[in-house]
């Protein structure tokens, strides 16, 4: 049952300290159903920390997390996945020296009851993912390829394909276009459009407002651990948004009008 104004994700009053460093200060953050949220902010603003709390990597220092209206009490990476949250981390989270097929199923291997790998099945599935999701077969990638030898864009493709493969309700992309060529960036943006078309939700983290503007429905601007601005795309033009961001960078404040 979805209440009319219920959100897919609600993070309430989240605070997180790393020692003395306040990464998040009483932050509130929401993602709606079938919504693409652009999460923007300077280096160290707390964007990655916020989503890592949501994905169970970091325990939240303080605050509550609701998923489809229900509070998540015990959080972990497995729990987040069960709920249908898939993530492409800024660090990509690949095992560089391992084979591509192992990376696709990293942490949730296809196994028999006794935990033995279903190697053939997993490789076949990887092959399909390569062909259908990434479209990289032409480049000579195989399931046995070692990730270390892939280009930056190919690695990002693997990380994204991995997130898209498992049926998720929310897909989080942390700096997915960093270091990518123009054509690779376009591909990533198309993935995001696909997520939206499939009725799923997405958090798109980036420094590059020009990348996120065309694909997002709403923008959240984070600065030093708290939200300083929130904009619906239909209410604001790209130029205006850019100007607001300059303002935040200079003053740490934003005017909402």
């Amino acid at each position: 049952m979805e209440l009319k104004n219920e959100k897919l994700v609600r993070m309430v009053n989240i605070s997180k300290y790393f020692g003395e460093v306040a990464a998040l200060r009483k932050e509130n953050f929401e993602v709606g159903y079938n919504e693409v949220v652009g999460l923007i902010g300077d280096n160290g603003a707390g964007k990655s920390t916020l989503i890592k709390i949501l994905t169970g990597v970091h325990p939240p220092g303080k605050g509550r997390i609701y998923f489809q209206g229900e509070e998540i009490t015990y959080h972990s990476v497995e729990r987040a996945r069960e709920l249908g949250i898939e993530t492409v981390y800024q660090e990509r989270a690949l095992g560089e020296q391992q084979a591509l097929w192992k990376n696709i199923f990293m942490g949730r291997e296809m196994t028999t009851h006794l935990g033995f790998l279903q190697v053939k099945k997993a490789k076949k599935e990887t092959e399909r993912i390569l062909k259908e999701v990434i479209g990289f077969t032409a480049a000579g990638l195989t399931p046995d390829s070692i990730v270390e030898r892939l280009s930056g864009g190919e690695k990002q493709g693997v990380a994204i394909a991995r997130a898209l493969h498992f049926k998720a309700k929310l897909i989080i992309l942390d700096e997915p276009t960093m270091g990518l060529s123009l054509s690779e960036t376009k591909k990533v943006l198309n993935f995001v459009k696909g997520i939206k078309e499939q009725g799923k939700s997405c958090i798109f983290i980036t420094h590059n407002i020009y990348h996120v503007y065309p694909v997002a429905d709403r923008f959240v601007v984070l600065d030093r651990g708290r939200t300083v601005g929130e904009f619906i795309k239909k209410d604001i033009s790209l130029e205006k948004l850019v100007n607001k961001l300059y303002l935040v960078a200079r003053t740490g404040e934003i005017s909402q009008n």
Binding site: T55, E78, R81, E96, M106, G107
Partner: peptide, 11 residues
């Protein structure tokens, strides 16, 4: 290979 990656992927 990479303990942080492994942790993020739920290993």
């Amino acid at each position: 290979d990479n303990i942080e990656s492994a942790r993020m992927m739920g290993i």
